[in-house]
Design a protein around this nucleic acid. Structure first.
Length: 347
DNA sequence: AAAACGGGGCA
DNA sequence: TGCCCAGTTTT
């Protein structure tokens, strides 16, 4: 990979050192005052990295603050009920992250000393190459380079990489060795955060602020002004799907369902099947509303049906179904969109 | 290797 | 509306 680069400064140990200093000096001046950077700890780093997967900093901040109040350390998290853990994650999405973090805390609560190698970290639930490198570099001072979406963007421009990557994950995997060559082993955590911070605040996807960039003189794309073409990541076709949901109200309650099997387990939504022994078409239900939401590249159209009369449901209700009293709406853990729709459709 | 997994912010 | 965000797990 490096052989095809037009820039050669990376091969000079002296230039490399100057590049690292320029970036770290900038970071020392410009770093954002984020909650997980105040009185930092391993726990805060782990929680923030779990929350930050595919999720913007501005979205994470209020969740992180609330989380630290509820679960201040690994031990308190390990002792919490999964229900409360999921409730604190409600609306953030990717709920398996919360379950994995909860599981991880049960191991971490017993650590005399945390593991130091990325290999050991990657055996923990929900920890992949990115989190392993982030945690061990930031909190344990290990020289492990992270390669996330920000790093891919910065490096693609720095070295004018014009390869078309199949997807973001492929780009991250391919560019990680390059990121590893650049890391400052004296301050690995700060170096990693500096590149990501640069990607987030200066090297924007569109309209990057090259004139204020601390490493502009090292950047092939910045000097040529052709940043717009990089990185080149092929985009996948989007798909559509439709789901029928049911709105059944009875005795000041709404029928909701939380799957035990799929990755939405523990998260309630309007049921997509009625616990009903009869033929559903007999219900001749009315369409109460139609809503859309996107999950990944799939746009779901959810048709919310309301039977004209309360159907005779199975008794007892099958696993996963619950009557949610309206008075308990706030206490239930619902997916973000379903909470919104339920509140909209309630009257 | 490709798909699934949430939700939201911003051009 | 389309892109993509401090990615990981499952198929």
């Amino acid at each position: 990979m490096e052989n095809s680069l037009k820039t050669t400064w990376i091969q000079s140990e002296e230039k490399l050192g100057q590049y690292r200093i320029a970036l770290l000096n900038w970071f020392d001046e410009q770093r954002r005052d984020l909650p997980w950077r105040q009185d930092p700890s391993l726990y805060k780093t782990v929680v923030s990295e779990f929350m930050l997967q595919q999720t913007r900093v501005s979205t994470v901040i209020p969740y992180f603050t609330n989380w630290l109040n509820k679960f201040p350390d690994f031990y308190s998290l390990s002792q919490a009920d999964e229900k409360d853990v999921l409730k604190a994650w409600e609306g953030l999405g990717y709920y398996s992250r919360a379950r994995n973090l909860h599981q991880l805390s049960k191991t971490a609560a017993n650590w005399k000393h945390p593991p130091v190698s990325v290999k050991e970290w990657q055996t923990l639930p929900g920890v992949g190459p990115y989190i392993a490198a982030a945690v061990t570099s930031i909190s344990l001072d290990q020289p492990e380079a992270v390669c996330d979406g920000n790093v891919v963007r910065v490096l693609s421009r720095l070295f004018a990489i014009s390869e078309i990557f199949k997807d973001g994950a492929t780009a991250q995997k391919k560019l990680r060795p390059l990121a590893q060559k650049l890391i400052n082993s004296g301050r690995p955590g700060d170096y990693n955060q500096a590149v990501m911070e640069l990607g987030a605040t200066v090297c924007h996807r569109s309209s990057p602020l090259c004139s204020t960039c601390p490493i502009l003189s090292y950047c092939e794309s910045g000097r040529q002004g052709d940043w717009a073409d990089r990185p080149q990541i092929a985009r996948k076709a989007k798909k559509t799907a439709s789901i029928r949901r049911y709105w059944v109200e009875s005795q000041n309650s709404l029928l909701v369902h939380a799957s035990k099997k799929n990755r939405l387990q523990g998260i309630h939504e309007l049921p997509d099947k009625l616990p009903y022994s009869g033929n559903l078409t007999d219900l001749n239900s009315q369409v109460l509303a139609i809503r859309k939401r996107t999950i990944g590249r799939v746009e779901y159209t959810e048709e919310i049906h309301q039977p004209p009369q309360i159907p005779l449901l199975l008794d007892p209700l099958p696993q996963g179904y619950t009557w949610m009293k309206w008075s308990e709406l706030k206490n239930f853990t619902l997916s973000g969109p379903h909470r919104k729709w339920i509140e909209e459709l309630r009257d």
